[in-house]
C-alpha cells in the first residue's frame, strides 16, 4: 500500500494544468497498491486554488498559504513540502521548471531516491517500476527506488490529465515551514514573462515549430499557420540560439517535451536532440527544402519545398479546408 502526496504547482493563484498529470500518476499508484493520495498546495493564494482540485478523489488537501510565498524559490517552498511529505511513501510533482528545481531537494532531504521525468509507472506487487527516457530519448530505462520514500516527477505529455470525479476532498491548513538554511542568500529579483495569447507549448493540441532557416521571418511565416490551428509556436535550438525565437520556445531534449496531436516542423533538420522533444507527437508534418533532412525519417507527411512559399500557402489552404 502506498500513500502518495501530489505536489500541486500554482501560477498566479491557479493550479497549473501539469498538476492534473501528476494526479493521474497518483490515481494509478493508489489503485495499484490499494493506497490513497493527498494533494499539497503551497504558495500565496493556495487556499483559493484548493477548490480547483477538491473534486479529484484526494483523501485530503493540505494547504500552506502565506503571502510571504508570493514568488517561488526552492529554499522557501521545499521545506514545507519536506515537512508535509512525512507519512507518505511517494511524493510526486511535475517535470516543469519548478518541479525540476525543487523535487531533487525534497528527495535529498528525505534521503529518498528520485526518478525524474518519468513517462510511465508499473505497479509490480509492492514495488513501483518507473519508465523514463534517457540518452535524448534513444533509450528507455526502467528503474525502481529502494528507499522507504520515493520522489518522482512526471512528464506531462505522457500522463493524460486527470478529470474530476466529483465529491469534495476535505481541506486542512498546514503551517509554512521555516526557510532552508541559505535562504537569506537568495533573493527573487524579477520574472520576465513571455506574453502570448497562444496555448502553452506543453498543453497545445497543435504545435507549429520553426528552425533556423526561417531567419528574421520566423514569426511572419509561422504565425498565420499557428493562427489557423490555434497552435502554440515552438522552435529548434538553432533558431533560439540564433535569436530568431525566444529561448522559451525551444523544443527538445533540453527544452520543452511536447506530444501534441499535430506537429509541424518547418525548416527543422531534425537533430536527435530536437527529435527527443517531439517524436511522441501523434502526427508529424515536416516541411523542408532538403529532402535528405533526418526530420523526414520521423515525419508522417513530408513536403520538400521552399518553406517561404509553402507555409503561407498551407495556412490559406488549411483555413479553407476547415471551412
Amino acid at each position: 500500500m502506498a500513500d502518495i502526496l501530489v505536489v500541486a504547482e500554482l501560477a498566479e493563484g491557479k493550479v497549473k494544468k501539469a498538476t492534473h498529470s501528476a494526479i493521474t500518476f497518483a490515481r494509478q499508484v493508489a489503485q495499484g497498491t490499494g493506497g490513497s493520495f493527498s494533494i499539497l498546495l503551497v504558495g500565496a493564494g493556495a487556499a483559493g486554488a484548493a477548490a480547483e482540485v477538491a473534486g479529484f478523489g484526494a483523501k485530503a488537501l493540505l494547504v500552506a498559504d502565506s503571502a510571504a510565498l508570493a514568488n517561488y524559490t526552492a529554499e522557501r517552498f521545499a521545506p514545507t513540502v519536506i515537512e508535509a511529505a512525512k507519512g507518505f511513501q511517494v511524493v510526486v510533482g511535475t517535470a516543469t521548471s519548478i518541479g525540476k528545481d525543487m523535487l531533487p531537494r525534497v528527495a535529498a532531504a528525505l534521503n529518498a531516491g528520485y526518478a525524474n521525468d518519468i513517462s510511465a509507472v508499473h505497479v509490480d506487487g509492492a514495488k513501483l517500476v518507473y519508465k523514463r527516457p534517457m540518452f535524448a530519448g534513444n533509450a528507455f530505462g526502467y528503474c525502481s527506488v529502494s528507499t522507504p520514500v520515493q520522489v518522482v516527477s512526471v512528464r506531462q505529455s505522457e500522463f493524460t490529465p486527470a478529470e474530476p470525479t466529483g465529491g469534495a476532498s476535505p481541506s486542512q491548513a498546514i503551517p509554512v515551514a521555516a526557510p532552508a538554511p541559505g535562504a537569506d542568500r537568495v533573493e527573487f529579483v524579477s520574472f520576465d514573462q513571455v506574453k502570448t495569447a497562444r496555448p502553452a507549448l506543453t498543453d497545445a493540441k497543435v504545435v507549429v515549430a520553426g528552425g533556423r532557416a526561417l531567419k528574421e521571418k520566423f514569426n511572419e511565416v509561422l504565425e498565420p499557420l499557428a493562427d489557423t490551428f490555434g497552435a502554440a509556436i515552438g522552435a529548434s535550438r538553432a533558431a533560439c540560439d540564433a535569436g530568431y525565437a525566444p529561448s522559451d520556445y525551444q523544443v527538445g531534449q533540453t527544452g520543452k517535451i511536447v506530444a501534441p496531436q499535430l506537429y509541424f516542423a518547418v525548416g527543422i533538420s531534425g537533430a536527435i536532440q530536437h527529435l527527443a522533444g517531439m517524436k511522441g507527437s501523434k502526427v508529424i508534418v515536416a516541411i523542408n527544402k532538403d529532402g535528405e533532412a533526418p526530420i523526414f525519417q520521423v515525419a508522417d507527411y513530408g513536403l520538400v519545398a521552399d518553406l517561404f512559399q509553402a507555409v503561407p500557402e498551407l495556412a490559406r489552404a488549411a483555413q479553407a479546408a476547415k471551412g
Binding site: V145, T147, D300
Partner: peptide, 22 residues
Amino acid sequence: RVEYVKFEPPPGRQAGVKVKDV
C-alpha cells in the same frame, strides 16, 4: 538509491509519405 532493472529502445517511428504539394 535508484536501480535500473531493464532498458529498451524507443518504439520505432516509420517514415511516412512524401506529399507532392501543399
